[in-house]
Structures are given as C-alpha cells and as structure tokens.
C-alpha cells in the first residue's frame, strides 16, 4: 500500500466531468510529475485533492494515513500533512504574512488559542523561517506585507514554497509552480524544494512544461489527457514529451522551446 493513494477519482465542475477516473500511488521520498496539455484536468486534480468547494468529487477515494482525504475539510487535509502550492496564490488583504504563517503553524500543532504551551514562540517562528527565507532570497520586510498583496509573480511563487518549508507537509502538490517564474526565481525555488526532498516528503509536480523537471528531477512521470492518465513511466517519459509534445493525444505544438514564452 502506498503512502498516498488516489483511487479512481472522478471530479466535476459545474456539472461537467473533468477527471474521469484517476488513480495514482505516491510514496514519501518520491517525486512524481503529472504532465498534460491545457484542459486535461491538471488544476482540477490539485484543487480536488485539497478540497476546493467548486470541485465536486463524484467518485473515488484518496488515502493518506488510513484516512480518506475526500471526507475531510480542506483545513483538516492540511493538518493531516497535505500541502498545495497554488498556481495562482490568492490575495488576502489586511492579513500579514507573519500573522498568517503563525496562525497556520499554531493550528498545525493543535494550538486553538487555549493551551499557550502549544503555540509557536517568536524565537521558534524566527528559526523556522530564517533558512528558507535566505534560500528563497526574501528579506524580512516580506513578513509584514499582506498575504500575496502586491507580490510580483515570482514573489508569489516563492511565498508558496516558503510556506511549504515552514509547514513541512508529507505530501506536497506543486501546481504549475514554475509558471511566471524568472530564471533566478526558478533556481531558488527548486533549490529549496530539493533541499526538502527526503524520506518524509512525497511531491506531486503538476506541470504543462518540462522546464521545472530540469531542476527537480522526478522519479515517475504520468501523462494526464482528457481527465485520464494515459501513460506512466520513469523520467524518460518527460524527455519524450520534450521532443514530441502532446501531439499524440492533443492538438498542441511540441514542447521543446515552448516554455520560453513563460519566462517573465
């Protein structure tokens, strides 16, 4: 039995079925990439795994630590160890990054405002964040800013990875984390993620392009087309896609070079 098991997941959005029975096994210590053309259901997969209310799960289970994620609220999934790095992180006006991260860390540890001994101390908070912030080249004023408010594309993505580093999930889903990233940012982000790789963390990279996989080497690659996984294999699958694109399944140009347009 794998640490994280997606079993025959079917998901609809506004009555239209997008995921048509997706199954995938992922163990801690592994990095999997789910690749697919536009409209294949990649983002639906990541949102459904996290429990976004607009995505209706019509069938399937997702097992982590003996619990079916699909029966849990998004915050319960997060506290169980699931993390989603958003493709488009949400702006939350008036809530500082510091307050946001501290509240999230406190809840992760079971502090609900009562037992002070469970709360993260200012010193711990500092020590949790200092390393990743240096690695991601984020200065300290960052914590005083409102969540994602006025962040550049690169800052948003780096902030997603900073949160991941602080919350230390067991299963991390990275949804198009490299899109909108300049070449420096993608390096900082990948270095940070590679630094977290290890026996305690399983990673699911959701991506259209192969670019991020040049920085974070996957152990397994799955191709998602039209709501179904049509191919699974090792890293060589990504190399193949790099050459042929998704032309075998969809009317899209080959991938080689196409990702350059994403550099900003």
């Amino acid at each position: 039995m794998a640490d994280f098991e997606i079993r025959d997941l079917r998901v609809s959005v506004e009555g239209r079925e997008i995921l048509k029975g997706v199954s995938l096994d992922l163990n801690r210590g592994e990095v999997h990439a789910v690749m697919g053309p536009n409209g294949s259901g990649k983002s639906t997969l990541s949102y459904a795994l996290m429990g976004h209310p607009s995505y209706q799960v019509t069938a399937g289970q997702v097992w982590l630590k003996g619990q079916d994620l699909l029966q849990l609220a998004p915050d319960e999934r997060a506290r169980l160890g699931v993390y989603l790095a958003f493709q488009y992180p949400t702006v939350v006006p008036g809530v500082s990054m510091r307050n946001f991260l501290r509240t999230a860390l406190n809840w992760k540890r079971g502090y609900d405002g009562k037992d002070r001994s469970k709360a993260v101390s200012p010193r711990e908070f500092q020590s949790l964040l200092t390393g990743p912030m240096q690695q991601l080249r984020m200065d300290s004023t960052f914590l005083s800013r409102y969540v994602n408010d006025g962040f550049s594309g690169g800052e948003k993505k780096r902030a997603e990875i900073l949160q991941m580093a602080a919350l230390k999930p067991e299963i991390a889903i990275l949804d198009e984390t490299d899109s909108g990233l300049d070449i420096d940012s993608i390096r900082y982000v990948s270095e940070t993620i590679n630094g977290m790789r290890g026996p305690d963390l399983g990673v699911l990279i959701i991506t259209h392009y192969t670019r991020i996989l040049q920085f974070i080497k996957p152990d397994y690659v799955h191709v998602l087309v039209n709501g179904q996984i049509v191919r699974s294999g090792g890293p060589e699958v990504a190399d193949e896609l790099e050459r042929t694109g998704y032309s075998e399944w969809a009317d899209e140009p080959a991938l080689a070079g196409a990702d350059l347009g994403e550099v900003s």
Binding site: V92, V95, A104
Partner: peptide, 28 residues
Amino acid sequence: PEQLFYLQSRGIPAPTAERMIVRGFFGE
C-alpha cells in the same frame, strides 16, 4: 470563498479564517 479556501488550505479552520479575513478587511 477563494480567500477562505486559501487560508483553510494551510490548516486554518473556516471560522478562524473568516475572522482573519474580516479583521484584514478592516485593517486598512
């Protein structure tokens, strides 16, 4: 609901998340 989901996705329960959003709304 997107703000609520974002905070929830980090482990913050909906009632606390809603309080943070309202407090943030007034913050300015």
